[in-house]
Design a protein around this nucleic acid. Structure first.
Lengths: 278, 278
DNA sequence: CCGAATTTGTTCGTATGTATC
DNA sequence: AGATACATACGAACAAATTCG
């Protein structure tokens, strides 16, 4: 039976929202079994004394939030995974970010080709529109789960063989080094968040309604000439972007400037901490 | 009447998704009136020859994407607004970011109080747990629309009067300067994206299912001691975070390193540009 | 200011399709 | 093949917010 208090019909809050809030709390107690599986929608509907559609609306909202995952024919499960931290700094390297956080990580080259630069690409790389550029399509995974899907462009005049070098070395940094560029810097990164589209749900194995963090970044050579322009789409529920704009140092013993150190322990209660306007 | 082709029942794609795709295209043609208002759900259901619930599912999906906005009693409208750019760099200032992008912007102090630091706050500020800290609740708006909702903490021992100074000056930077701190730097910013909760929808005037960009940031004094820890929630469909990790310079005439310069002109076609795995 | 009309939001009922076990 | 469980779709009714005469 449902835990605390009955559902309030006719109050300001809809039933499906009340149920969603109840489920969100109860899954960490006894609602889900040892495998994280929830009772079936029919059973939940009986427990809450509502129609199955009302339960479905609640589950849908929680699936949008990334709390639950419904699989046709299998059941509804609690989504359990901690976020990987992807650092963004002047020395951001594409694949290096996820080291030490996952057992197995991979950067797979899906496709590569030469094409004419659009206005956006040309502007970012300092080329004229229509200039030849090399495009690389990469899929980043950690522990078997896809995490990022990126498209990068390079000036074909300088880096026509970048794909070959990447295939040999498995790394953008090493590929550029193999072509004579021994260092580069991240100049800027634009960050937006949007809902996953059909391509995202396929590539990143997301459920419809999930969130994608979109970054558009420019890397520059030591002489500040643009080298690489890339658009990356991260599965938002698996990633935290960490921007480091100032040397990260420990200030006092036990005190970390990295706010993420404390997040995992307080994430569950963060909601109660926030205060509304009133 | 619907434009091209009938809906395909029993094909691989559900009706509501076909309808959503159709609406997404047709709103830029003739589906919406001069005010961006769509026909009522009942009328759309008749046009497409489906039940009203099926139209609602399509509208719901498009509302999640941020394309449409449904208002009870008023109708369903096309959402039209361009994103503001919020820069994040070593010299990020809370309110300064939105200058020159909006006619009217405001940073309103909703609440302030003194409290004991939690483990998260204490860790970020280099204090011991339970130490007294001042908390400021701010609401940032641009052109009348709420954009950000932030909570900041300061060491009460150093900045007990921060609220008074903020009320007088209307700026965190000026308030800190008034208390003897003439400069500070952004040390780190953690960025995540989540679905808006009830508090977000109220404070930022979002529709349920909207996306919120959550940042957790630490500002430090010139001696690298932590000064301010803040959590900010941005309405994701109104904001682009721009991380500048390397001096932004023009490299060639007409070439900008800022990738955002080209986004607006290509955003509409970005979807077709992306390629899937196959 | 009131009340009717309009429009979206919620809930229940029912049936069928599809994926998984 | 059968049972289970989620996905989609239609129908009906009422609630809640807004608009407008």
């Amino acid at each position: 039976m449902p835990r605390s208090g009955r559902l309030q019909r006719g109050a300001g809050v809809s039933l499906w929202r009340q149920i969603a809030d109840r489920i969100r709390v109860d899954i960490s107690r006894d609602l889900a079994d040892e495998n994280g599986r929830l009772p079936s929608e029919i059973e939940l509907a009986e427990r809450f004394g509502v129609n199955r559609h009302t339960v479905r609306a609640a589950i849908s909202a929680l699936a949008h939030e990334g709390v639950l995952h419904a699989a046709q024919g299998r059941g509804t499960y609690v989504r359990k995974q901690k976020r990987l931290v992807y650092p963004i700094s002047e020395k951001t390297r594409f694949s290096a970010g996820l080291e030490n956080q996952s057992r197995e990580r991979k950067s797979e080259l899906l496709d590569h080709r030469c094409e004419a630069a659009s206005a956006e690409i040309a502007g970012a790389l300092g080329l004229s529109e229509g200039a030849q550029v090399v495009r690389l399509e990469l899929l980043g995974s950690a522990d078997g789960a896809p995490v990022s899907r990126s498209t990068s462009w390079f000036d074909a005049a300088r880096f026509s063989d970048i794909a070959d070098h990447f295939i040999r070395t498995g790394s953008i940094t090493k590929a550029l080094r193999g072509m004579g560029l021994h260092d580069y810097s991240r100049a800027s990164t634009a960050i937006e968040a949007v809902h996953a589209d059909e391509i995202d749900t396929a590539d990143l194995r997301l459920s419809p309604g999930a969130i994608v963090l979109v970054t558009r970044a420019v890397n520059v050579a030591p002489d500040d000439s643009p080298v690489q322009y890339s658009q990356t789409r991260f599965a938002a529920d698996r990633i935290t972007l960490l921007v480091e704009t100032h040397g990260i140092q420990k200030f006092q013993s036990g005190a970390s400037i990295n706010p993420l150190d404390a997040i995992s322990s307080t994430a569950a209660s963060s909601k109660t901490k926030r205060t509304s306007k009133n």
